[in-house]
Design a protein around this nucleic acid. Structure first.
Lengths: 338, 338
DNA sequence: GCTTGGCACTCGGGAGACACGAGTGCCAAT
DNA sequence: ATTGGCACTCGTGTCTCCCGAGTGCCAAGC
């Protein structure tokens, strides 16, 4: 691949195809773009681009359509950053500033992102596993029932009830409380689990200590609130003009399989960079005909979780990437403040 | 409407149309059902049924299709209860018995219901407003920050943090704790709000009392965990053979508007009865071309919430109604035990 | 050597023609 | 009231034909 003009032709093809949704021919190309050459020249370039696998034609004597490889080149080298309009910026701030708690932030982000990009949005709830323990509280509901409340730096609160075999005295409870606090507060989730498991039990209450520690570890390790994702904008799938049963149905199914979505989001790069997976590049068959644009987010540029969108390979990459990045930044800022 | 045979013809039309998804003609009807008369007779009956608005033909010289009014008659007077297969019963119990907590019960119910009926399932989380306060706990995170934990009979736990203007002594906290406990525990949510608002503040801590009471009332009244719904099986929308953009898109949008879904579920009758809304019978334009089958559920035959399915008017009503009722009963039983 | 105008060729898709068949309505006979 | 018969309607699938967009290639020009 060489020649600046050839690249310009590819860029023009991608842009036209994205906006018109129809295969683009050489004549239309020279009319819509100031390429400074004739359609015959463009045809020659297109032949080369096709030979190198960047574009293809659905059938003889139709226009050209970018391949996954073509989109990849476009995203990596040809797309210029498209700044968001001021209206979009305003929408982001007004929309997200109204959030009242963490769940609300996630819910609003999903809706915002799907509206901005007109694609299906996926937002992961801030993951416990990368956050730290902020506080643990033990509340005796009755002498034999203990409410365990776990507060994490991500803002998530988790609570469980532990049934004890024998009643616990106030003194024992105080000891137990200081034990778990000492072993866990300030630690990362993984370290807290290790610390809790390694600590010596409260004298004479080994069973109760074990029960509480195990409950806490379970909450830390795989609590049901962990690894959750929110999905929104599924209605945008209806815009997949063609191939409903072949494309939309498996996608809808995959969108309900949150495990798959989590693996998808796991691809997101941690920093402020936006990851783009185009077509069959990833190991996910369900998404072989779609592209996924993701990025990490979290307070202090430390990625707690990821968010992104799923859409057809034929999408406005610059605009989508800008929207994803902007929302991730704004959400991170909110988490920073909260 | 008279004549037993005419009704039998209508029933046959509905059953055939539901299973074949194609307009049904007089000849096919007499072949598939033992009606004991000729196709000409059936044609006469069909002409009458059409005149009375129970069936219609998409175009001249095509078979007949039931109208909303026809489905209504079928559901009200012609459908016989179709018992679930033993495999289905087994699926329900194995699927739901594995649930670990309330959220899990709801999540599993949604998936189960959508698989059983092959429709879009909607399950409302047990509503706070009809449940009672089981426990309230106040935890001093710091002298000025109070964690308020609210536990309801529905099994839902809600927690909020209150920032106090001035530090609270342990004695004040004890007083405050007994005050809120006394005013709320055992009460219905509505009564608890009234009781809390009416109670005299802790002497010398009127501001703090007010703050805690208001936080509790807010959590009781419109907590974010209240009025939630889970949706599942949206992939089943892909089976809407025809009319994607006209039918599926608005439906997908409506399914994300949980407010609309809640109003939809609000139509559900409280007792063990199953409510069926067919086509444009309800006030919801988005669902004008779909039917909604709902029922209430909750412990002790006292409906805390509702669940149901949304599907095309052309659906297997007896089977769907049986599935909805069976799932509601089973979930109610689980809530009873929990 | 790249670029360009010209030209023949390909093929998908839309428009019309047509036959088929399912389904109906009506009528006269039972 | 039921039934067989029959003419009629009309949607659907198929076939053909034509058009035009788009291509590839070639020879001439800068």
């Amino acid at each position: 691949m060489q020649s600046d003009r050839r690249l310009a032709v590819l860029r023009a093809i991608v842009e036209d195809y994205v906006s018109t949704e129809e295969p683009v021919g050489s004549k239309a190309l020279v009319e819509r773009h100031r390429l400074g050459v004739s359609s015959a020249t463009v045809r020659n370039d297109m032949a080369v681009l096709e030979e190198e696998g960047y574009i293809t034609q659905p059938h003889t004597s139709a226009g050209r359509v970018p391949t996954d490889k073509g989109y990849r080149l476009f995203v990596d080298r040809l797309s210029t950053v498209k700044p968001l309009s001021s209206a979009e910026r305003r929408a982001i701030s007004t929309f997200l500033d109204g959030a009242v708690d963490l769940d609300d932030v996630v819910g609003r982000s999903v809706r915002l992102l799907s509206q901005l990009t007109r694609q299906v949005a996926v937002v992961q709830y801030p993951s416990l596993s990368r956050s730290t323990v902020r506080h643990v509280e033990l509340v005796a509901l009755t002498p034999e029932r203990l409410l365990v409340v776990l507060i994490l730096s991500s803002g998530r609160v988790d609570q469980r009830v532990v049934e004890l075999a024998a009643p616990l005295t106030d003194d024992d409870l105080t000891d137990l409380r200081s034990l778990v606090l000492h072993a866990s507060v300030g630690q990362s989730v993984a370290d807290a689990v290790l610390g809790l498991r390694a600590s010596a039990p409260v004298p004479g209450q080994a069973v109760a200590t074990g029960a509480v520690v195990e409950t806490l570890c379970a909450a830390l390790a795989d609590g049901p609130s962990d690894q959750r994702v929110a999905v929104g904008g599924a209605a945008n799938l209806a815009r997949y003009g063609d191939s409903f049963d072949t494309a939309v149905r498996p996608l809808l199914e995959a969108l309900e399989e949150h495990v798959v979505l989590l693996r998808l989001l796991g691809e997101a790069a941690p920093g402020g960079t936006v990851t783009v997976r185009i077509g069959a590049e990833g190991p996910f068959e369900e998404f072989a005909s779609t592209s996924v644009v993701t990025t990490g987010y979290g307070p202090e540029s430390d990625s707690l979780a990821a968010l992104g969108i799923v859409g057809p390979t034929r999408m406005d990459y610059p605009g989508t990437m800008a929207a994803v990045r902007a929302v991730a930044r704004y959400v991170s800022r909110i988490l920073d403040e909260g």
